[in-house]
Amino acid sequence: MKTQAISATPPEQLQQVTFDSAMEARIEELLQRYPTKRAALLPVLWLCQERYGWISQGVIEAVARRLGESPAFVEGVVSFYTMFFRQPPAKYVLQLCVTLSCELCGAQRLAQRIKEKLGIGFGEKTADGVFQLVGVECLGACGGAPVLQVNQDYYEHMSEEALDQLLEELAKEQ
């Protein structure tokens, strides 16, 4: 498994957003699935996050215009869900599960190891912008505790050695 890096569009390029024809086509296709435009909001936000890496104020405004909502409404929705990035994320977002089964199986040891290796704690990013550590709640994979999600991929039964190896591989990738 090779985890794909996130490439985040720099903030200055996301101040004013207009969707190109490829995006438009996909939005049009999403709108066919629902009887209201509003229902396409989450899928359209996902589309934007895939494309730009994160959801800037400019993206919120563009989405709001496209779906006929107010920017405030869209922002309210974006802020309710934990997976939408409001800041440009690192290339690899390490999402460490800290809920019960993972904590019972040593999640705190992994957090400690990440701190030693990369010098970052929860909510922090490395200076080179490669890694970012986030504590997340149960990932629905507790049988594989402790679980670490990196971008889209699940890594289960993580030992400290497996973590070291993973971090090295990811650092080499880019």
């Binding site: 989450l42 869900y81 997976m83 997340v136």
Partner: peptide, 12 residues
């Protein structure tokens, strides 16, 4: 019958 996958975005 049409079936669509709709993804959440992180909320228990």
């Amino acid at each position: 019958l049409e079936v669509w996958v709709h993804r959440g975005a992180g909320a228990y």
